[in-house]
């Protein structure tokens, strides 16, 4: 990251969000503070129900925190009215979703241009930018296609182009590789990486996909509404000897010692299967790796 990235784009201070009340209340986000630099790729991981979506919604101005402040590009968005928030979203934030969320009745080109219609930007300039995005993202020949005939990768590239059309300062990506095969997922990751590096756009990615870690400047773990900086913590990636999934040994709940060796598992089921016949699984399993 160059000096340009040291400039702060987002500052989150002590935000909290609780749903429900009394005994049924759930602390979705509990006193989170965070700074995102310009051009930084920040990855937020965590189990389901950890508060990732709530946090993302608050950063995107879609949900108000119960307390605390979110400053975006020097402007506190927590006290804004809905019309002001709409302005901020239209000009400053680009959204990318797991299920692509394209507008099904509009063509690829119209989907990409849609956010620009919510701003007062010059149409000629926007159209030129749209052409560039279509070419860069390999969608030029799909310009007039409806989303229903696109592949998953094409849909997500369209969604990325849509997120970029208004030249946002922040991109919020929710599981951007979640519905993609590994090749398309890799393409999308590289695109997000290039966007951050070349256009100095901050990219916040919420995901379960550990492959995305490869492009992240920083990885945060969100659990029970709290953030933990994973880069600052000790962690070890190992392979589950039963299913072959990558498991963080540091956080693994299911593990067993066998022949003086510690094995970690993604689930209780894998642990049970291992215990039933360890020799079958030990053959070919990896040693723990960093």
């Amino acid at each position: 990251m160059g000096n340009k990235m040291k400039e702060r784009l987002v500052k989150v201070s002590n935000i909290r969000k609780t749903f429900g009340s009394g005994i049924a209340s759930v602390k979705a986000v509990d006193n989170i503070s965070l700074v995102i630099e310009r051009g930084e790729i920040l990855l937020i991981m965590g189990p389901s129900g950890s508060g990732k979506t709530t946090f993302l919604s608050m950063l995107g101005g879609l949900l108000s925190p119960d307390s605390g402040n979110i400053t975006l590009d020097g402007v506190n968005i927590t006290q804004m009215k809905s019309t002001q928030l709409s302005e901020v979203r239209a000009h400053t934030i680009g959204f990318i979703f797991q299920s692509f969320n394209l507008l099904e009745a509009l063509t690829v080109e119209d989907n990409i241009l849609f956010p620009s219609s919510l701003t007062k930007e010059d149409t000629v300039e926007v159209n030129k930018r749209c052409d560039r995005l279509l070419n860069t993202l390999g969608l030029a020949n799909r310009r007039n296609a409806l989303p229903k005939i696109l592949s998953g990768g094409e849909k997500q590239r369209t969604a990325i182009a849509r997120a970029l059309i208004n030249q946002p300062k922040l991109i919020l990506a929710d599981e951007p590789t979640g519905n993609l095969d590994s090749q398309s997922g890799l393409e999308v990751m590289m695109l997000l990486h290039d966007i951050a590096r070349e256009q100095n756009v901050s990219v916040l990615i919420v995901t379960h996909d550990p492959r995305v870690e490869d492009i992240a400047d920083r990885v945060l773990w969100l659990e029970d509404g709290r953030l933990i900086d994973r880069k600052a913590e000790k962690h070890v990636w190992v392979k589950d000897p039963v299913c072959g999934m990558r498991v963080d040994e540091w956080r693994a709940v299911h593990f067993v010692k066998y022949n003086n060796h510690r094995y970690a598992f993604c689930s209780k089921r894998c642990l049970e299967r291992f215990e039933s016949n360890p020799e079958v699984y030990i053959k070919g399993s990896d040693s723990p790796t960093d």
Binding site: S86, V88, R89, A90, F95, N101, L103, F114, P115, L118
Partner: peptide, 15 residues
Amino acid sequence: KEIAIIKAMGATNRR
């Protein structure tokens, strides 16, 4: 869902 997307992208209720 699409209306929510459009709202998220910055469209006002009036529109």
